[in-house]
Design a protein around this nucleic acid. Structure first.
Lengths: 151, 151
DNA sequence: AATTGATTGTGTATCATTCTCATTAGAGAG
DNA sequence: CTCTCTAATGAGAATGATACACAATCAATT
């Protein structure tokens, strides 16, 4: 949950015998320049990069997203769209959670300090090294309650 | 988050113009007879039913799992295996959360009363009708920390 | 018992993600 | 700076979970 620069990313990769590539650096930058609390799917990141003239293959994007999630740099979000989203894994003041309407998929972000504390304490107690903790609330939004739509 | 019987399931379905079918009743029973905190994937449920001589098609299983999750009867869990798992959505004393090792996928369940309160309050504040709230912690387990394995 | 439309089963389609493998290119050693 | 080793990439194929289409069935209501 730290802020990464190209240099710190490089040293963390090299420590494990891995490499800093232009693709990885570019992808990290994209997430760092993203508006706060904005998240991207693999496909969205792919097209965003295409639009900037950066040709990084979809395979590399999938590999990099998974790698950075496992390093704790990115959070992997399972929202309602049927595919994963990723966002920077930011520390305390920006750490947030998601309230999702299971009908229209509308998603609201909210903050709660005690949850991160609970997560940290729980991981610690079991000897786990914490990467991310997120509270996901599944619910029906006001509009969909009124709509009385099927399912 | 209530306990369902065939009758209460039927009335809740009928209220919405839907029907109680033998397949739906059977699937609900399977989850109710499952050991506490055990969860099933669609495929696992399918084979479990086959073993009991119940021939319910995979399509129906997927449809029913999604339906019951949207009704708040089941919880949809996104663990680490790449497919969803389902379990009974049980009230307070049994409500729990998951601590997942992103490397070996080992999953630990834990309880925390305050999280459910937080979820309830958050949903309420936004006017959402709560179905489920779950804290998911991604981390690296002690064994995988020692293993120093890639990724 | 008749009617209506929700539900099922079968097979097919789709879509996200992973895999394969030949090629490229970081990182460390000398 | 050059060499070596092997991680990483790109392109396309493969996989696997899930959704869909549609004809046949059957639960609920009259």
């Amino acid at each position: 949950m730290a802020l990464y620069t190209a240099t710190s990313l490089k040293s963390e990769l090299n420590d494990r015998g891995w490499r800093l590539t232009p693709q990885r650096e570019t992808i990290l930058q994209v997430f760092q320049n993203l508006p706060k609390a904005k998240h991207l799917s693999a496909e969205e990141l792919y097209h965003l990069l295409q639009g900037e003239g950066e040709n990084i293959s979809l395979s590399t994007i999938y590999r990099t997203l998974k790698l950075m999630a496992r390093m704790g740099i990115l959070r992997e979000l399972e929202l309602a769209e049927g595919h994963k989203h990723y966002e920077l894994n930011q520390p305390y003041p920006h750490h947030h959670h998601h309230l999702i309407c299971v009908r229209c998929n509308k998603t609201i972000e909210f903050k709660n300090d005690s949850i991160l504390k609970t997560g940290t304490k729980t991981a610690q107690k079991e000897g786990y090294h914490l990467l991310d903790c997120q509270l996901t609330i599944h619910a029906v939004c006001p509009a969909c309650q009124r709509a009385l739509l099927p399912i």
